[in-house]
Amino acid sequence: MDAPAERAKTPWYAPTEAGVLRISIIATAVVAALGIVFGLLSGSYAIVFDGVYSLADGATSVVALLVANLIANYNASDASNRRLVEKFTMGFWHLEPMVLGATGLLLSGAAVYAFINAVGSFMAGGRPLQFGQAIVYAAATVLISLAMAWYGRRANRRLRSDFIAMDVRGWLMSAAITAALLVAFVIGLAIQGTALEWISPYIDPAVLALVCLVVFPIPLGAVRQALEEILLVTPTELKQHVDRVAGEVVARHGFTGYRAYVAKVGRGRQIELYFIAPSGWPARTLEEWDALRDEIGEAIGGDSPDRWLTIAFTTDREWAE
């Protein structure tokens, strides 16, 4: 097949995980800069918090990008990663839940700190606000956030990356938060010169406190998932699948039992299977045992660089415990 025909079959929209994260980091930096600048100009702590929150999110995205690159380099088949493999023979999957967990804790902590400041400001009588500048920022940020969420979600249909999935949730959360700010600022602008104008100084701290209450629990789901993976909690669905495959192998080949050990760490799936054979079985060649391993591996599925599969055969149950 000639080169033009091959190019015609290649989808034009095929971003990599690292590429998506790079674009997200650039967009996050833009939003963070807008938030800090417009927040200071308008006098809105809610906007400043939005900018600082975006800055923290962008910093964790940089770390996520570094981890994604490490995993991609580790899985590369060329000789350039040989030294990396020798230093980290167990791979880098364990870094993913660590980054996701730290990100969630950082963002939740920022929300708690901002909530305390909002309550203090509200009790002190609020603060004046330039609603026109605040509205310009909020409208621009909502558009950027929705565009980035759409881009990340579309890319992740093929990539299926936990990092990108969390990044998309972050952009959607940012869009929702900033949309709430936009509504509040429009209302604040509308009541200027009316009998309700006395409410204006309280709008910014009240909205900030409400936003923090909404934001705080959202990253905790990622923290819980990260803790489960760090603690090697057995994923139920994967364990059931491995048990089903192993049970069929035991019944088909006459083993007396098996032991299965399963964990999910980031994008990595770690599976260890020990099949217990009866004593006195006829000898088999290594090629025959390898063929059986291939059969079991195909039945388990998901053969990729992110699957760590160990299959052993023994007559001694203690080796399987």
Rank of each mutant, 00 (worst) to 15 (best):
N117Q: 11
V142Q: 11
A111S: 09
E197A: 11
G152F: 04
I218P: 09
G104V: 02
R224Y: 12
A260R: 02
I23Y: 14
F131K: 00
A27D: 09
L55E: 11
I199F: 13
F255V: 04
L286H: 14
P11W: 08
A184N: 07
P128Q: 07
E6M: 10
A138W: 01
L55Y: 10
R244I: 07
A263Q: 10
G247Y: 04
V215M: 08
Y13I: 08
M1F: 13
G91P: 13
A251C: 00
N75G: 04
L70S: 03
W281N: 10
W319I: 03
M173K: 10
G302N: 06
I116Y: 01
P15I: 07
K87N: 12
N117R: 10
D2Y: 04
A79S: 14
A56C: 14
A283S: 14
I71H: 03
T178M: 13
T314W: 00
L100Q: 07
C212E: 10
V250H: 05
V186Q: 12
G51K: 02
A222W: 03
Y274L: 01
L238C: 08
L34V: 04
A76R: 05
L146D: 00
Q270R: 02
W198F: 15
A139W: 01
E248K: 06
D50I: 02
R252K: 10
G91K: 01
A3R: 12
A312P: 01
T285K: 13
S24P: 11
V62G: 03
V242N: 02
E298Q: 15
G301Q: 07
A291H: 13
R284E: 10
L105I: 13
F115S: 09
L40H: 05
L210N: 03
P128T: 11
E272S: 12
S54I: 07
E228R: 15
V242P: 00
L66W: 15
E228K: 15
L105Q: 05
A124T: 10
S279T: 08
T89E: 15
R160D: 15
R7Q: 14
A102K: 03
L100S: 11
S174P: 13
A27F: 14
Y151I: 07
E197C: 04
P15T: 05
A46C: 09
A277D: 08
A102Q: 00
I177L: 12
P4Y: 02
C212R: 04
R317H: 07
L232Y: 11
S145T: 08
A283Q: 13
V31A: 08
R169K: 14
D2A: 00
A165C: 08
D50T: 07
L41G: 05
R267P: 00
V262T: 05
N69L: 15
A299F: 01
P11A: 09
I218M: 15
L146W: 02
A291N: 06
R169C: 06
T285Y: 03
A18S: 15
G247V: 06
A134V: 01
W12P: 05
L231Q: 08
Q225S: 09
V207L: 14
A222T: 08
A134K: 01
R307L: 15
A206V: 06
